[in-house]
Design a protein around this nucleic acid. Structure first.
Lengths: 156, 156
DNA sequence: GCATAAGTGGACAGTCAACTCCACTTATGG
DNA sequence: CCATAAGTGGAGTTGACTGTCCACTTATGC
């Protein structure tokens, strides 16, 4: 359904969205929290920055932060960044010229794609964080909720 | 959403389903009708045969035919053959042990996958052919419906 | 202004899906 | 039984995606 880059990108953005507004996190912070290998994560973060989803600040104390409110970033925005948005079937894959509409086979498939796309388009990162659940995104190995408490030290 | 092999496999099965019961078509017949490159189509057909979706007959006059009724073959059967069925998210992709359920992010994604899977599982090849539409699967380049008339010669 | 922290850009290697080829086996029919 | 049609199995090629590395730039703070 979605590629690895998109999965990693979503994790990173969800994590940043749990931080106090405008607060930054460095690539290695994010890597720890999202369990994404640092070198690859850096590439993912760069892509999100170019796309305008994140702001980056260089230099000491720099890092990444959301470029807009978490209610202004949709899941689809992130998938798009990594060419991972559900692939609509626009035209007949057989290249048959007479086909202005899709045949029943491709219509069926495209409908499923369209459904997913619609959901991803209307779901924001904030929606995800506000979803009632006993499992919160990115919580720690003991199942403890640590999101929103990024300054908490790991202790014994 | 689905890989190239699955797309090709679906075309081939849909085509075979339009033939009179038990009638065979050779790989090159199918290739012409489905616009799939022969060498790759052969591989696809072999996979469907191993899977039990098609019957194959070697030798002169041989070819492929459906191994069961078109109402007994689901779209999902074919996707499965090519590891292209919608990939459910069974466990937390972060590998967090405490997570017995998915977090809201992965739940959202998995729900979309599950919806598509459900539809593909209950839709048979026959359903596709019986769908009312002014465009029929695999019809010819002039938009004429030729399915169901495979013996008709192409003439001026 | 120098050392250091942190993001940037691009090159590079591994893996897997997409696709091709070919030698082999099976079956038909003269 | 030999020529030919047609499916089988597996090796080989290409390219995109995954993931790593490094030299470079920018910013902080002493």
């Amino acid at each position: 359904m979605l590629n690895q880059s998109a999965e990693y990108g979503l994790r990173a953005v969800v994590y940043l969205a749990t931080l106090p507004a405008e607060e930054q996190a460095s690539a290695s912070d994010i890597s720890e929290r999202t369990k994404v290998p640092i070198p690859y994560l850096q590439k993912v973060l760069r892509a999100l920055t170019r796309q305008g989803v994140l702001n980056a600040r260089r230099g000491m104390g720099g890092g990444f932060s959301l470029a807009k409110g978490s209610d202004e970033i949709t899941v689809l925005d992130i998938l798009d960044t990594f060419d991972s948005s559900p692939q609509r079937i626009e035209t007949c894959p057989l290249g048959i010229k007479g086909h202005t509409r899709l045949c029943p086979l491709h219509t069926l498939i495209d409908e499923q794609v369209a459904n997913a796309e619609r959901v991803f388009e209307k779901t924001t990162i904030r929606d995800i964080l506000e979803t009632q659940s006993d499992v919160r995104p990115l919580c720690d190995g003991q199942g403890r909720v640590t999101l929103g408490l990024p300054n908490e030290k790991k202790s014994g």
